[in-house]
């Protein structure tokens, strides 16, 4: 009999606390599978963000450390510099990456720190109850944009991939989504490439993942998949934004 799917080795056997339809559980699983497949469990170090996925360490069975909100890239820098043999990744939300931690992210990328940043973009602040994120779309309703996000007073959605891509220190930047089986497979491939870039000592990699937050979007899980495809991907186009690694895809 052929095994088609099994519980990933490095995903702890506990139920997720995430809301139904949340993208975090899918992304956690992708990372756990990759750690096994790439055989890096003995040296991988992870940093969860502030936000819903702060509890990532309850699920991923690897060495992990908390970081202050937004400081993931700075903490990752310290870890990698002091222990270069490690594979260091930070798992950050959109607010963590593109609001409070913009400086840390931009400068880690600019120094070409050999780390991998996995950024989960759900266009909203999930844990605190659905406030505006830097990536909230124009006219999108959130609890702090009750009349829709107005560019005049609340600015525009921040596109971190594009910002990071212009820096000479970044080598691999890709935006993916977990809104369909095909895209989930692409997201996994992108994260795999991010880790590989780091293992090859090539420099800074950023993988953004558009991810659903049905509860705060006030949608069903299926509607939120559709909303990512129809609305989010218009503003945040998927695909490789930058790749100067000079190598083929990770597969």
């Amino acid at each position: 009999m052929k095994t088609v799917y099994t519980h990933p080795k490095y995903l702890k056997k506990v139920p997720f606390h995430y809301c139904p339809g949340c993208g975090h559980s899918v992304i956690h699983r992708l990372i756990a599978e990759l750690i096994d497949e790439m055989n890096i469990h003995d040296r991988v170090l992870g940093i969860p963000p502030c936000g819903c996925s702060v509890f990532a360490y309850n699920y991923l069975d690897i060495d992990m450390t908390e970081a202050a909100h937004g400081r993931g890239a700075a903490v990752a820098t310290g870890m990698k510099r002091a222990f270069p043999e490690a594979i260091v990744f930070s798992y950050q939300g959109d607010g963590d990456l593109a609001a409070i931690g913009t400086a840390e992210t931009i400068h880690a990328a600019n120094r070409g720190e050999n780390i991998t940043v996995i950024s989960v973009n759900n266009a909203v602040y999930g844990m605190t109850g659905g406030q505006m994120a830097p990536t909230t779309l124009l006219d999108q309703w959130t609890t702090t944009t009750p009349y829709g996000r107005d560019a005049k007073t609340a600015g525009h959605p921040v596109k971190m991939c594009e910002l990071v891509a212009v820096l000479d220190g970044s080598v691999y930047v890709e935006r993916t989504a977990v809104d369909s089986p095909a895209n989930i497979r692409k997201a996994k491939k992108a994260i795999q490439k991010g880790f590989q870039v780091q293992m090859d000592n090539l420099g800074f990699s950023l993988v953004e993942v558009l991810s659903p937050c049905p509860v705060n979007w006030k949608m069903t899980p299926v509607e939120s998949w559709e909303w990512i495809e129809k609305e989010m991907e218009k503003v945040f186009p998927l695909g490789i934004i930058k790749d100067t690694t000079g190598k083929k895809d990770a597969d």
């Binding site: 970081a67 400081r71 700075a74 310290g78």
Partner: peptide
């Protein structure tokens, strides 16, 4: 925070 990371 880099100090934090190195200490970790």
């Amino acid at each position: 925070n880099m100090v934090f990371g190195a200490s970790v």
